[in-house]
């Protein structure tokens, strides 16, 4: 984590110095980015909204990593999870408040988890590579959700590509987090996200199963020889991975908009990979890296607003440079670890 933070800041410094070419003062750009993240309760709220989403997808990627699998499918799993939460909400509009949210959450977990289970099954029992399968399933998920949203549960009062609204029973009306953060998209889901990162940390550090999963991830053959149920462990971890991605439903559907808007995710699933990488799969460090990436993402639109030359595309350069430097740091760390073995 320390190394990747260094990587992050070197990357940020290099990226900011690029802005010199665009005729901007890097210190000024850095100041805008900082203000963008902390400037007002609303700004912080939007940053924390991205953070919460990225914690879920980051955890999703890192749990699969620990089991020796590479889950590129968080984007698809979060879509299916969100879809299931929306459908559950529309099916049972009259459930009383806390139960309704629990049902929708359960639907999101099951949806995301089961969607992830399929590529895991293909990988473990048929040998298809999970990277390819999960990536392809992202597109299937996008197609499936678009179809269900537009043809089965469209919003009757609008021509926008979005689902019908969930009933008021699903919305936490006096959400203290929303209140503090200026009625921003952030919500109680942030607390759940933090809780999840703690639970994942606990799972890996303090439980037998967590240890078994890590052993499997480190060397599946050795683990198999040592009598570990490697297949079962990998299946379970991939299910957890998908379920965590489904947690984005809490951030967006239940915590923010109360409906499924097609295209709501700013690539949470893919930025989540960078988040997990940056935190070296440490569930607690992941909170920090999710916040930093969230702030960068939030800063992109503010840079566009505050300056004339730093457009949306330039912000991509900044993000890309930061990710590159983190990966270089990560690679160096990986080499060192291999060397020491």
């Amino acid at each position: 984590m320390k190394n990747s933070l260094i990587g992050f800041f070197i990357g940020l410094a290099v990226a900011l110095s690029f802005t010199l070419f665009a005729g901007e003062n890097p210190i000024h750009i850095g100041w805008i980015l900082t203000k963008s993240a902390f400037g007002s309760p609303y700004d912080l709220g939007l940053t924390l909204y991205y953070t919460a989403g990225l914690i879920f997808t980051g955890l999703s990627v890192s749990v699969a990593f620990k089991a020796g699998l590479f889950n590129i499918g968080a984007e698809g799993q979060l879509l299916i999870g969100s879809l299931c939460a929306t459908v559950a909400g529309l099916l049972f509009p009259n459930l009383p408040f806390p139960i309704s949210v629990c049902v929708a959450t359960l639907a999101a977990i099951l949806g995301g988890g089961l969607w992830a289970l399929f590529p895991a099954w293909l990988k473990i029992y048929r040998g298809s590579h999970e990277v390819i399968v999960t990536m392809m399933m992202n597109l299937i998920a996008a197609g499936l959700t678009s179809w269900v949203i537009l043809k089965v549960i469209p919003n009757p009062d609008s021509q926008n590509p979005e689902s019908a609204l969930l009933s008021a029973n699903y919305i936490f009306t006096n959400d203290p987090i929303k209140k503090i953060l200026g009625d921003s998209p952030a919500s109680w889901a942030l607390v759940i996200a933090l809780l999840c990162s703690f639970l994942v940390w606990y799972f890996f550090e303090k439980t037998k199963w967590g240890y078994q999963v890590q052993v499997t991830g480190a060397n599946p053959f050795a683990a198999d020889r040592a009598g570990q149920p490697t297949k079962k462990l990998q299946l379970i971890s991939f299910f957890i991975s998908g379920a965590l991605a489904g947690g984005v439903a809490l951030v967006e559907i239940l915590g923010n908009s109360g409906q499924f808007k097609i295209g709501f995710s700013p690539d949470f699933g893919f930025i989540g990979i960078a988040v997990a990488l940056m935190a070296r799969n440490n569930p607690l460090g992941l909170v920090v890296s999710a916040f930093l990436m969230g702030a960068l993402h939030k800063g992109a639109s503010d840079l566009d607003f505050e300056t004339t030359t730093i457009t949306r595309d330039f912000s991509k350069i900044i993000q890309g440079t930061v990710i590159l430097f983190i990966s270089v740091q990560g690679y160096a760390w990986f080499k060192r670890k291999k060397g020491s073995k």
Partner: peptide, 19 residues
């Protein structure tokens, strides 16, 4: 005139508010 391009749906509200 000042124009901005949105990065995602949730950034839109932020941009309008800033203006």
């Amino acid at each position: 005139l000042k124009y901005v391009e949105a990065t995602d749906i949730n950034a839109l509200e932020n941009l309008h508010r800033q203006f």
